[in-house]
Design a protein around this nucleic acid. Structure first.
Length: 181
DNA sequence: CAAGTGATTAGCT
DNA sequence: GCTAATCACTTGT
């Protein structure tokens, strides 16, 4: 099981090393296939002066969960002992608890679409506000990867600033990776 | 391609 | 205190 010290390093390193690991909540779980790194760049919530930025600046190895666009949650893990950092989990390839995931979706979906995209991922795993600030391993758990997967990178998605940074990481040819615009 | 959704935040008073 | 803008998305046309 991965513990907090895994997240003591910088977000870009952690984002790449999370690919291939298995993410669990309850009986639902899957392999992480897409991540994004955030540090102290303008697209990062670390610039926010409120509790959001504080969690990202002052903790590591904890969950950072927030509501976006009024309807969806996004799951991050805070990183870095020395400065702001977080890794957004954008997609997993479901392996366990498919029935639980299907039960949380409004309509039946193909398995590879259940947790494709950060909003869908949280819906599939049943992760919401109540997990914000929680220590990794308490309810949401991570299992180390067995082998190192191939890794590709691109600009991060949906942001207006920091487009030059290639801080989105994904496993090529994985159907659960969100479509690149 | 546009709309829906509500918490959070910055910038005022 | 109050208000308007913003938002690391998804879905349906």
């Amino acid at each position: 099981m991965l513990t907090a010290d895994f997240f003591a390093r910088d977000a870009v390193t952690v984002a790449q090393e999370l690919l291939g690991c298995t993410l669990w909540h309850g009986d639902a779980g899957g392999i992480i296939v897409e991540t994004e790194a955030y540090t102290d760049d303008p697209a990062s919530h670390a610039v926010l002066r409120g509790p959001r930025g504080q969690l990202m600046r002052e903790t590591y190895g904890r969950l950072y969960v927030y509501l976006i666009y009024g309807m969806y949650y996004c799951l991050n893990f805070t990183t870095d002992t020395r400065g702001p950092g977080a890794v957004l989990i954008r997609a997993i390839a479901p392996t366990h608890g498919i029935e639980s995931m299907q039960a949380r979706t409004p309509r039946p979906m193909p398995v590879h679409e259940l947790a494709r995209g950060p909003g869908r991922l949280c819906r599939a795993l049943g992760i919401g506000r109540e997990h914000n600030g929680e220590q990794i391993g308490r309810r949401v758990c991570l299992q180390p990867r067995a082998t190192v997967p191939p890794i590709a990178s691109s600009p991060r998605i949906g942001i207006t600033q920091g487009r030059d940074l290639l801080w989105r990481f994904f496993i090529p040819n994985e159907p659960s990776v969100s479509r690149f615009r």
